[in-house]
């Protein structure tokens, strides 16, 4: 994801907006973020995404999203947000030791 948009935006009133590109590599799988590009409008963004990110059969479907529309967690909050899960080992199946007869449960 491209950050520091404010600094960049000041000098780029005439720059095409930035889009994030997500590609589904084959049917049945989820779309994965693969990069970003500049385009004037949604149609152009889709077309450029095809040209830039799927020149070698990398995908069968493309999503584009305006970068400034994405809301992301703050890296400074990483500890506060994600560390509490560290000590909740009971959320994982490996926490439970069952008798060997049923251990494939």
């Amino acid at each position: 994801m491209n950050s520091n948009q404010n600094a960049a935006n000041q000098s780029s009133l005439n720059e095409w907006p930035l889009w994030e590109v997500f590609v589904r590599s084959k049917s049945g799988l989820d779309h994965k973020h693969c990069g970003s590009l500049h385009a004037a409008d949604p149609q152009m963004a889709i077309q450029l995404a095809r040209d830039v990110y799927t020149r070698r059969l990398e995908g069968c479907s493309v999503w584009v999203v305006r970068s400034d529309q994405i809301v992301a967690s703050d890296p400074a909050d990483k500890g506060m947000y994600f560390d509490p899960m560290e000590d909740k080992v009971y959320r994982h199946p490996t926490f439970y030791k069952l008798p060997s007869e049923v251990d494939h449960m």
Binding site: S3, A7, A8, N9, S11, S12, N14, E15, L18, G35
Partner: peptide
């Protein structure tokens, strides 16, 4: 051309615009 675009996009994450 594509490689240039990937790299410009990576550089933009550091806070400088493509035009700059």
């Amino acid at each position: 051309g594509g490689h240039g675009l990937y790299l410009y996009a990576a550089a933009e994450t550091l806070g400088t615009s493509r035009d700059q």
